[in-house]
Nucleic acid binder design. Structure first.
Lengths: 107, 107
DNA sequence: TGTCTATTTGGCGAATATACCAATTATCCA
DNA sequence: TGGATAATTGGTATATTCGCCAAATAGACA
């Protein structure tokens, strides 16, 4: 694998890494329903606000969300329209995995 | 976030984590072109065969690929048809990010 | 200006992921 | 059976990620 190819996959992996955490997936799905401020999201997640803020920063850094300051609050929103489709893909994989697990038990 | 919801996002994150490595993304894309055996993939990746084998095990464990033994070789193939679409999504995000970076420099 | 609320940043310990080497397993074939 | 090749597994050192606390930053408003 040459250097250029490796760089390309590293760039893709940066985005995939941003998706690779349950809290961040939850944040993305919540944001797919509309803009939310950090304190709302923090309440839903139930973690320290600094933790949520860092997760949001990771999503922003990957280009998955954008933020907008309104007074003392910061609202985040999805930047990438294909995120909801990704969730569909993840769900279909989970469903197929569950099916296989069932088959291996019953058959 | 209640326990059930958390479990759901953890399950999704398991799959996302499997995607979150440049070598594994490369393997998936290569497998999207057809079955490949571990030694072929190892040669392409340019890492130790044990490293590649472990990456493939992670992909298999996530339900993204399946394996098939043929004699002394093991062939892997994609199990999930939506993987190529995922790559398209990753690429579109990268393109949008590059665009924004360009705008922030020139405008 | 001083205070309050919302958010981000710095830093640290704990947990997780990664890559390689060495050893093991599995299959083929002489 | 014994040797050769392909692949997986175990072990370990290193690197990265994670979550919280504490501190810093920013805006609103009296």
């Amino acid at each position: 694998m040459d250097r250029r190819t490796r760089k390309r996959y590293e760039a893709r992996a940066e985005i995939a890494k941003a998706l690779a955490h349950p809290t961040r997936l939850f944040l993305l799905e919540e944001l797919s329903h509309g803009k939310r401020c950090v304190c709302e999201l923090t309440e839903m997640v139930g973690a320290d606000i600094s933790t949520v803020s860092k997760h949001l920063a990771i999503l922003k850094n990957a280009g998955l969300v954008q933020d907008e300051k309104r007074g003392v609050q910061v609202f985040y929103e999805l930047q990438c329209p294909c995120i909801p489709k990704m969730f569909g893909c993840l769900e279909s994989i989970l469903a197929a995995n569950a099916e296989r697990k069932y088959e291996s038990v019953s058959g």
